[in-house]
């Protein structure tokens, strides 16, 4: 809109209001960035609080300290004092959950997305399923926790099906939670694949399944990966649902298999954050740092994949 800048209205109020509004919009947008930096800064300063901190401009040493701190936090198991304790149980539990949720939710989510985009005809069934998925994406996460508690932990009253407070229950609960998000993201990616790809494959004698498997899915892969990583990072950061499907408030040793009890990282953070003691608060901040490092690296991977694929498509 270059030509607009040459036009100025006569009325003074109209001349003043425009820039004022633009400034308000800019401020509102960058408030997010400000909040993000305040948040990181405050967590960092609390997390590093118990160390004799060097001034912030000793950046390399501080970064080294931070790395050391994160490493020690990630590898230590709960100890008697705040200095010796760590989040090893949480990190191991969360990684187990991440793996199992990937195992459960990704194939099912992809399958449903492919079915909705490539197989089912537009009609009442598709409309109902689609509305249902959108509604499921809006269900509060704590309701999924209750679902998991009843269905997986207690087996809905049937003892043989009850999985107890094991990693299985947590992973299944989180899988149901992220399933709608995965489906919606994958559907968008699949929809973006040009129809000509399908026509070409079908014309050469491929069956519908071969078309989907060998042509549509590979073409949609970058978009699907981005959506998957974002949804999985959501699963890792969730606290409320796992609060419902874990029993132990703290464990001495990390889980060894999916049948063991577990305390994921966000829950460990919550367990420290709810006590007003400064030592506990420092630990909570350290745990949050670990969690954010994990999530931000996952998000960064997703953004890189998206940018790359965008460049490929344009060429």
């Amino acid at each position: 809109m270059q030509e607009l800048h040459t036009y100025t209205p006569h009325s003074r109020i109209r001349r003043i209001l425009g820039p004022l509004f633009a400034i308000a919009c800019v401020l509102a947008t960058f408030s997010g960035v400000v909040v993000l930096s305040i948040l990181l800064g405050s967590v960092l300063s609390t997390g590093l609080g118990h160390q004799a901190g060097r001034p912030w401009y000793h950046l390399p040493q501080n970064a080294w300290d931070l790395g050391q701190l994160l490493l020690s936090l990630a590898t230590k198991t709960p100890g008697e004092s705040a200095q010796t304790t760590g989040f090893r149980v949480g990190v191991v539990s969360s990684l187990w959950l991440l793996g199992l949720v990937t195992l459960f939710a990704v194939p099912v989510g992809l399958g449903a997305a492919v079915y909705l985009e490539e197989y089912v005809r537009p009609g009442r069934f598709k409309a109902v399923v689609q509305t249902n998925i959108a509604n499921l994406a809006g269900v509060p996460s704590i309701v999924y926790g209750i679902l998991g508690l009843t269905l997986f932990v207690r087996g809905f009253g049937f003892k043989p099906f009850a999985l107890g407070y094991s990693i299985w229950s947590g992973a299944l609960t989180l899988s149901l939670l992220v399933l709608p998000v995965i489906i919606i993201a994958a559907q968008e990616a699949i929809r973006a694949v040009p129809t000509t790809y399908r026509q070409a494959a079908l014309a050469l004698g491929a069956t519908r399944w071969q078309t989907v498997r060998d042509h549509v899915l590979p073409a949609a892969l970058p978009g699907i990966m981005t959506g998957l990583i974002l949804s999985l990072s959501r699963a890792i950061g969730e606290t409320a649902p796992v609060l419902m499907v874990t029993q132990a408030s703290s464990l001495l040793n990390p889980p060894r298999g999916p049948g063991d009890q577990y305390v994921p990282l966000p829950l460990e953070i919550y367990n420290y954050a709810k006590y007003p003691d400064p030592a506990d608060q420092t630990l909570a901040a350290g745990g949050i740092l670990l969690l954010l490092v994990l999530l931000i690296s996952m998000n960064a991977v997703a953004i890189v994949i998206r940018n790359r694929s965008g460049r490929l498509n344009r060429n």
């Binding site: 947008t29 993000l36 948040l39 950061g237 606290t239 901040a285 949050i288 999530l295």
Partner: peptide, 24 residues
């Protein structure tokens, strides 16, 4: 640049915001 960073902000776990409320 802004759209992905908004997404990043949306991806921060709620427990972090709760901690921020107590601490800050």
């Amino acid at each position: 640049v802004l759209k992905p960073s908004l997404e990043l902000l949306a991806g921060i776990p709620t427990i972090v915001y709760g901690f921020l409320a107590l601490q800050l």
